[in-house]
Nucleic acid binder design. Structure first.
Length: 236
DNA sequence: GTTGAGCGTT
């Protein structure tokens, strides 16, 4: 008999193991390694401390430091932190290979992005600071554009990850850009719903009807339109 | 039954 948990279609992520020793990062021609070197990591659960994160990235010798932001009064993790690497290339590699992959001993995926650089204390901004502004603008643009062509996916099983959801939709709709599961910040458990973002509006509309009732893992999904995100700030 | 998450200290 087949295992009820056969999730072969949501197989292990491709980039998870870095078995080969990597060349020393001491290449003097580091001009091509220029650029941002800090990553932001979010979606952390309260129990995920520095040791846990170091354990996640032991294969990266370019990881210089790691910090989790904590509430100064309570000492509780604020759910995000920063990873600093010795060069841009290493950081970019970690971002690409880890982002969206499943976190060890947790149900959720790594949520990584470029960090906004140090909040420039009381100095005049360097010319390099433009880079940071550009990065920020890119990020905001990405957020803004993420509101279009999304669908709501409910009735998900608890074990469905963003990776699985993405896979199920991407198989039918090539324009799928992203899929995300909403997790409870404190328990880390799935809230059993998520969002899938399409690049093509026609595929979005098709999916609204075609994927309603389709199975992901053990349950039929319920598809719905996404209401406008609460726009706290009017476009005035 | 269900409608979202985001950037630090020296």
């Amino acid at each position: 008999m087949a295992s009820p948990y056969s999730l072969s279609w949501a197989d292990a992520p491709p980039y998870h193991y870095h078995g080969r020793p990597q060349p020393a990062p001491d290449s003097p021609a580091s001009s091509d390694g220029a650029g941002p070197r800090s990553l932001w990591i979010g979606g952390l659960l309260p129990w995920m401390d520095e040791d846990y994160l170091y354990g996640c990235f032991t294969t990266s010798r370019e990881l210089l430091s790691l910090v989790i932001k904590r509430n100064k009064q309570t000492g509780q993790s604020e759910g995000f932190g920063f990873l600093k690497f010795s060069d841009h290339t290493a950081a970019a590699h970690i971002l690409k290979s880890y982002n969206g992959q499943k976190m060890p001993n947790a149900v959720q995926d790594f949520k990584l992005n470029w960090a906004t650089q140090q909040p420039a204390p009381k100095k005049l901004p360097d010319p390099d600071f433009k880079l940071d502004l550009a990065t920020q603008q890119e990020r905001h643009a990405a957020v803004d554009s993420s509101s279009d062509h999304s669908i709501f996916v409910g009735d998900l099983a608890y074990n469905v990850t963003g990776y699985m959801l993405h896979h199920v939709f991407k198989a039918r709709y090539p324009s799928v850009k992203s899929a995300k599961i909403i997790f409870d910040k404190f328990t880390g458990l799935s809230k059993c719903y998520g969002f899938v973002q399409f690049g093509d509006v026609d595929e979005q509309i098709q999916a609204l009807t075609e994927m309603n009732g389709a199975y992901c893992s053990t349950r039929p999904m319920r598809i719905g339109p996404v209401p406008k995100k609460k726009s706290a700030y009017a476009t005035v």
